[in-house]
């Protein structure tokens, strides 16, 4: 393979994909953080939420296990990941694949619909997740989020 052939192949690939630019970073807008109703926690900071969803903090203050749940492909998932983890959705996926394939973590619980994630959080001790403001959240509590 000559370098000219290589560069031609590269140019074609770049042209096809570089302008097919689905934004990796969604705009920040409302996301509701939800938790199991039995939890004593009522508020969390953005940093605490980030640490939970990146697996840095895995226990609540009473030493019960944190179980966090995520959505996939929905717009609210993009909004949540960008706003709270400082990553794009594919960076977030790569982060957890990293943990999985080196034997230091498991892929988070993933749900396809907001109703499924609400049901899971409602019935799971120590569970936390997120939904859009329009989701039905009668069976869970909403966590207040502070900037610090």
């Amino acid at each position: 393979m000559t370098i000219k052939r290589f560069l031609k192949a590269v140019a074609v690939m770049v042209a096809i994909t570089a302008f097919n630019n689905t934004p990796g970073m969604a705009s920040e807008s409302e996301v509701l953080i939800i938790a199991n109703k039995d939890m004593t926690i009522n508020s969390l900071s953005k940093a605490e939420i980030k640490n939970i969803f990146l697996g840095m903090t895995t226990f609540w203050p009473d030493n019960t296990k944190i179980t966090f749940a995520t959505l996939v492909k929905l717009e609210v998932h993009k909004r949540f990941v960008v706003k709270y983890t400082n990553k794009s959705t594919d960076q977030f996926r790569a982060y957890w694949r990293n943990q999985l394939f080196i034997g230091k973590g498991r892929i988070p619980k993933i749900f396809k619909t907001e109703q499924e994630i609400v049901n899971f959080v409602a019935k799971t001790d120590g569970a936390i997740g997120y939904v859009s403001p329009s989701a039905a959240i009668d069976t869970v509590k909403v966590i207040t989020v502070s900037d610090n």
Binding site: M13, V14, T17, A18, N20, N21, T22, P23, G24, S88, T89, D90, Q91
Partner: peptide, 9 residues
């Protein structure tokens, strides 16, 4: 230096 031009590239 890494840059994510898009989810695809």
């Amino acid at each position: 230096l890494n840059y994510d031009f898009s989810e695809f590239f």
